[in-house]
Design a protein around this nucleic acid. Structure first.
Length: 485
DNA sequence: TGAAATGTTGGGGCG
DNA sequence: ACGCCCCAACATTTC
């Protein structure tokens, strides 16, 4: 019997694509049969196990990746085990694989898991290689002049943006070699990533979770919206943003691909293009902060804020979650999130300001809800965003920065189109009052067929009162902290 | 990637 | 013609 070439395992995790996949490309270079595998080991995840919406996205991303491999005669192996090590060992024993490659992850608990695994696999005699396919600049390569990690975006950006970005890796998929033996694999459905009760209908019509769809979305964004990005990105009533975040989440597209497509197809002098690239670096900055300050998914970067006396009001929290705060722009955002698995970024800032400032709820409650409901739920970006709103993080909003949900609505949804789309009970109201229905005249309300307090709630707290309360609470806290020091 | 309060300026109405 | 007031528009400061 001729000795068969030993296959290479490519372990897919948050890089569910064929193109620009460094681990896969390197495996192909070796010219040996490849076993692509995905492992679901829930018991190994910490409290930030993927939320319901991103599990939905994962299911569809795996279906798509499996189909893409099947087209080339390969089977994406699905494993469901208590531990990744167990799953990998079984595969190694069964196939005689000698090498295992993957693309690196950066979430603190996953990084720890990966480094343990790498050690164990090496000591078991395997060749293990890891790659970067997720970031433009990995956090360990970025430090300030003094050697400290950056905590402020602008100096971070100034440091990294002049660096050359590696071109996306062209993966020669036609050279993919399958293994000849039949390998045991679970069905993707066995992972039970889909919801038990079918709440995903609208999400399914809004999102096609495939590598091809990600590229299509990139193409259409670069062909139009990016030109007006400077002004339109803040308008939730238009599709002015890239909407690529759900694809970035599981790596259906990578930032190198986005960056180079922008470089090649866009006028870099244009303001919108420039601002968009800066947004891509916000994602990088978020990874940088979480990597260097691994506690910031759970605790404030500024430790004194963990002693802030946040309110604990389950009714308020629930009203916020369900989009029943009585502020139309907030409720539209929360319902967009619930219905579509995504929320416009401008509105994310408004809804988080309401929760943390007007309602004084802990930013962690908001982060947990976003984690469960966002298709793009990303630990680094989510933590950074919520700590920004909470005023307790890196480059955070100062404590006195409190959004006015009425003026924000009027400014960024001037016709009320966004509100009408997601808060149907307000559809009959005129643009002049749609962001403050309590100001509508009795006639307006009658015409709109609306009774406040019955069909739509009155504001959960009057803006002026909520603002005043937050300012007082935070000023008092600042004062007390100053005394403690 | 704020909002509100306060300050300043300048045009126009009007006695 | 002039001073006075009002107030919008803009600028600055304060939270």
């Amino acid at each position: 019997m001729t000795s068969l070439p030993r296959p290479t395992i490519v372990w897919f995790r948050q890089d569910l694509r064929l193109q620009d996949n460094a681990a896969l490309a390197y495996a192909i270079e070796l010219g040996r049969p490849i076993i692509p595998v995905f492992i679901w080991s829930e018991s190994e995840s910490d409290r930030w196990r993927p939320g319901a919406a991103s599990r939905w996205a994962l299911h569809h991303a795996l279906m798509s990746l499996q189909a893409d491999f099947a087209e080339r005669g390969l089977k994406l192996i699905i494993k469901k085990e208590a531990s990744c090590m167990e799953a990998l060992q079984e595969l190694i024993q069964q196939t005689g694989a000698q090498r295992i490659f993957w693309n690196r992850r950066y979430e603190p608990s996953l990084r720890q898991l990966d480094s343990t695994l790498k050690r164990e696999l090496i000591s078991a005699g395997l060749e293990v290689k890891s790659f970067n396919s997720t970031l433009l600049n990995e956090p360990h390569t970025v430090a300030s002049g003094s050697g400290a990690p950056y905590k402020v975006y602008t100096p971070y950006w100034k440091k990294v943006h002049p660096r050359a970005v590696d071109a996306p890796i062209a993966v020669e998929v036609e050279r993919l070699l399958p293994v000849s033996m039949k390998l045991r694999s679970r069905e993707i459905a066995d992972l039970e990533l889909l919801p038990r009760i079918a709440w995903d209908h609208q999400i399914a019509t809004a999102w096609d979770m495939s590598e091809a769809a990600a590229q299509k979305r990139l193409d259409s964004f670069l062909a139009g919206p990016i030109l007006n990005y400077a002004s339109q990105r803040d308008r939730p009533d238009f599709e002015g943003t890239s909407s690529l975040s759900p694809y970035l989440k599981w790596g259906l597209i990578g930032p190198r691909q986005i960056y180079h497509a922008v470089q090649q197809r866009c006028d870099l002098e244009q303001e919108g293009v420039h601002i968009y690239l800066k947004e891509l670096y916000w994602r990088e900055f978020a990874y940088n902060v979480l990597y260097h300050f691994p506690h910031t998914s759970d605790q404030a970067l500024r430790p004194e804020y963990d002693r802030f006396p946040w309110a604990d009001n389950p009714e308020h929290l629930q009203a916020w979650r369900r989009g029943r705060t009585g502020y139309p722009i907030v409720d539209a955002g929360m319902r967009q999130l619930w219905q579509t698995g995504w929320m416009h970024n401008r509105v994310r800032m408004i809804v988080s300001s309401i929760l943390v400032k007007h309602l004084l709820q802990p930013w962690r409650r908001g982060a947990e809800w976003f984690w469960d409901t966002l298709l793009d739920a990303d630990l680094a970006s989510n933590s950074l965003g919520w700590q920004w709103s909470g005023g307790c993080g890196a480059d955070a909003a100062p404590y006195f920065r409190i959004f006015n949900p009425i003026t924000q609505g009027q400014k960024f949804d001037p016709e009320g189109l966004y509100v009408r789309r997601y808060v149907p009970e307000l559809r009959g109201l005129d643009a002049a009052v749609i962001h403050q229905p309590w100001e509508a005249s009795p006639l307006d309300l009658k015409t709109a067929g609306l009774e406040l307090g019955r069909d739509y709630p009155l504001p959960i707290v009057a803006h002026a009162d909520g603002r005043k309360r937050a300012l007082e609470a935070l000023a008092l806290f600042k004062h007390q902290q100053a005394l403690v020091k």
